[in-house]
Each structure stands twice: as structure tokens, then as C-alpha cells.
Simulated scan of single mutants.
Amino acid sequence: MRSAESRTYVTTTTNRWAVTFLSDMAATLRDAKIHCLKLLLQRQLSQSQINTELQQQFKINKRQANSIIAYIEGHLKSARSCRDNHLEQLQGKLKHATLVVIKLEKKIKAHRKYLQAVEQVNRGQKKKIPKYLKPQYQDACPIRCYHHLTRYRQAQVKLHHKKR
């Protein structure tokens, strides 16, 4: 079974009357869409009342008014669903950022305690570093890094940006 094909042909016209008519109609329908959007957002009139008002105010037929209403309702429905999806994505990003911040804060705090213990050993206040303190980051800069920050400094910068 073959499916039906549809084709669209595009051409330019040199007929001044047709170009003028189409330009005027486009401007009229644009104004009708804006007016319909305002009416739908106010939610004071039913769809049939909006249809009648569009027909009377813009001198269009019922089929054109119905298509304008359907077009605007589709845009409103799409905007609402996109807004819900966007809020859902933002909540996911916020949840992930808070988890990353908590994890980085713990790791940086542990490494800071380790660095303080190393400093105390270097000053001679302690003989050795306690076993429970271990370095969380390497002191060396990673190979081929352009910013020359140690991994500890990179983690601090990352934490700063995540908190922002």
C-alpha cells in the first residue's frame, strides 16, 4: 500500500494586486492573533465569543477566526508545557549542584586538615601526620594544564563557581 504524497510548490509572483492583498492580510491576521492572545489570557470570554469578536473587529470569516484561535491555543499550550519542562530541568540542575557543593566542601575540608597537619609537622609541633588524615588532592599540577593550579586549587575554584 502506497502512502499519499504531498508536495508544496513555492514561487514568486509579480502580480501587484496579489502581493498587496497578501501583505495587507498578513498585517490584519497578525493584529488578530495579538488580540486573540490577549483575550485568551484574560479568560473572560468563551471560544465562540472570541470567534465572533475576531470576525466583527477584523472583518474575517469564521474559518479564519477558528484557525487563529487554534493557532494561539497551541502556542499557549506549548508555552505552558515548555515552562513546566524548564522548571523540572532547573530543579534537577539545582539538586545536582547542591550535591556537588556538599561533596566538594567535605573533600576540601579534609584536605585542609591534612595540609594543617603537614604544616605542623614541618614546624616541628608534631612528629608525624595522623593516620586518619590523608591527602585528598595531589600537590602537583596535572600534565598539560594551562592555568598551573594544583588539583586542590582547582577544586576550590570549582566549589566557588558551583556556589554561584
Rank of each mutant, 00 (worst) to 15 (best):
Thr150Phe: 04
Ile34Asn: 07
Leu133Asp: 06
Gln64Met: 14
Ala26Ile: 02
Thr20Val: 05
Leu104Lys: 09
Thr13Met: 05
Leu41Phe: 01
Ile68Pro: 15
Val118Pro: 09
His160Trp: 08
Ala26Val: 01
Arg2Met: 06
His161Thr: 02
Lys134Ile: 06
Leu90Cys: 09
Leu45Trp: 06
Val100Asp: 12
Asn15Arg: 07
Tyr114Ala: 07
Lys33Val: 06
Asn85Ser: 13
His75Phe: 08
Asp24Gly: 13
Ala65Thr: 10
Glu105Pro: 15
Thr150Gln: 07
Glu5Ala: 12
Leu159Met: 06
Asn51Arg: 15
Val101Leu: 02
Gly124Asp: 05
Cys145Phe: 03
Ser6Asn: 06
Lys106His: 03
Cys36Val: 06
Asn85Gly: 08
His86Asn: 12
Gln91Val: 15
Lys106Thr: 03
Ile143Arg: 00
Arg112Val: 02
Cys82His: 13
Ser3Cys: 08
Phe21His: 15
Lys38Gln: 13
Ile60Phe: 05
Ile108Thr: 06
Lys158Thr: 13
His35Ala: 15
Lys131Glu: 08
Val101Lys: 08
Leu22Gly: 04
Gln154Phe: 02
Tyr132Lys: 10
His96Cys: 01
Asp31Tyr: 08
Arg164Leu: 07
Ile50Phe: 04
Leu159Thr: 07
Glu88Pro: 02
Leu37Phe: 02
Val10Asp: 06
Gln125Ala: 14
His111Trp: 01
Cys141Trp: 00
Ile102Met: 05
Ile34Trp: 00
Ala155Tyr: 02
Gln116Tyr: 00
Val19Phe: 01
Thr28Arg: 15
Lys95His: 02
Thr98Gly: 01
Glu105Leu: 05
Ser78Asn: 15
His75Ile: 09
His147Leu: 12
Leu133Tyr: 07
Val19Ser: 09
Ala117Gly: 08
Lys107Asp: 09
Tyr146Gln: 14
Leu90Ser: 07
His147Glu: 15
Met25Cys: 01
Val10Phe: 08
Gln136Asn: 05
Ser6Val: 03
Thr11Met: 11
Arg151Gln: 12
